[in-house]
Simulated assay, not measured.
Amino acid sequence: MFGSEKPTSGRWRTPPFDPRFPNQNQTRNCYQNFLDYHRCFKKMNLRGKSTQPCEYYFRVFHSLCPMSWVQRWTEQIRDETFAGKI
């Protein structure tokens, strides 16, 4: 299972600006960072390396995404029904 339940160390008021998502609506930014975190976590685990570099994505999606979305996506990953490619 992926580490979505891992507690964050420190909190951001807002994540840093990402030029890929310049608009006010940050829904795509939320989703992309969720995907990036899980891809990073999976890849680092497969290589037997520390998942510390993935912490950035974790903090960003936790700052941007409603927790109900994160919980639903995490359940879908666990149930293997998630639509995104991880």
Score class of each variant (00 low, 15 high):
Gln76Leu: 13
Leu35Met: 11
Thr14Pro: 00
Phe82His: 10
Tyr57Cys: 12
Cys40Tyr: 07
Asp79Ile: 03
Cys65Glu: 12
Tyr31Asn: 02
Met1Asn: 06
Gln71Asp: 02
Pro66Thr: 07
Leu64Asp: 02
Gln76Arg: 15
Ser50Ala: 06
Phe82Tyr: 13
Asn25Pro: 02
Gln32Leu: 06
Asp18Asn: 03
Met67Cys: 14
Pro16His: 02
Asn25Thr: 02
Cys54Arg: 01
Arg13Gly: 00
Gln32Arg: 06
Cys65Met: 14
Thr74Glu: 03
Ser63Arg: 15
Phe41Thr: 00
Pro53Leu: 07
Gln71Gly: 01
Lys85Ala: 13
Val60Ala: 02
Asp18Ser: 01
Asn29Thr: 03
Pro22Glu: 03
Arg78Asn: 15
Lys6Phe: 02
Gln52Tyr: 08
Leu46Asn: 15
Phe17Asp: 10
Arg47Leu: 13
Pro66Gln: 15
Phe21Ser: 01
Tyr57Gly: 09
Pro53Val: 11
Phe41Met: 00
Ser9Ala: 03
His62Ile: 13
Thr14Gly: 01
Gln24Val: 07
Gln76Ile: 11
Phe2Met: 10
Gly48Ile: 07
Ser4Met: 07
Arg39Ile: 11
Trp69Leu: 15
Gly48Val: 10
Arg72Cys: 06
Arg47His: 09
Tyr31Met: 05
Arg28Val: 06
Ser68Ile: 04
Thr81Ser: 08
Phe34Ala: 06
Phe17Glu: 08
Pro22Lys: 01
Phe17Cys: 02
Asp79Trp: 01
Gln32Pro: 04
Gln52Asn: 10
Pro16Phe: 04
Pro66Tyr: 07
Asn33Ser: 06
Thr74Asn: 12
Asp36Lys: 00
Ile86Lys: 13
Cys40Trp: 04
Gln76Pro: 05
Lys42Cys: 14
Gln26Trp: 08
Arg11Ile: 04
Ser50Lys: 13
Gln32Asp: 15
Arg20Ile: 04
Ser68Asp: 13
Asn23Gln: 07
Asn45Lys: 12
Phe34Ile: 07
